[in-house]
């Protein structure tokens, strides 16, 4: 229960940051907090299920999905920070200053 409380708390803390912070850097960092909470949860369940799994391969599936989240978060950070660099050049790093998206 303690781990569930911790990861749920981290997820909600990250969500609070995403919804209240106005600078893109802080929003991106808050998203990383939310993803971190999810990976801790997945890794812990992966370990717990390992006890009852019938093979090592089945037991490591959770770790495989945790790695997938790590990769997704890294890709998200790369694209988000590239957008941030462009917005910094335009002098608009606050979320309320970004009003239009063009292809």
């Amino acid at each position: 229960m303690s781990l569930l409380m911790l990861t749920s708390g981290l997820l909600c803390l990250g969500l609070y940051g995403v919804l209240t912070r106005r600078d893109l850097v802080a929003v991106l960092a808050s998203v990383e907090v939310m993803l971190g909470a999810g990976t801790i949860q997945l890794a812990a369940f992966s370990t717990a299920l390992n006890v009852t799994a019938t093979s090592a391969s089945a037991a490591a599936t959770g770790q495989g999905y945790t790695l997938a989240i790590l990769v997704l978060a890294a890709a998200e950070a790369a694209v988000g920070l590239a957008l941030l660099v462009v917005l910094v050049r335009l002098g608009r790093t606050r979320t309320d200053q970004i009003e239009e998206v063009r292809g």
Partner: peptide
């Protein structure tokens, strides 16, 4: 979240458990 995930709490333990190593992860991936 706490109310929803509460039935799963029995699965988790605070004490570290022996887990599968990198070979098993590579096998799955």
């Amino acid at each position: 979240l706490l109310v929803t995930l509460r039935p799963l709490a029995g699965l988790l333990s605070l004490t570290p458990l022996v887990s599968s190593g990198p070979e098993a992860v590579a096998g799955v991936l």
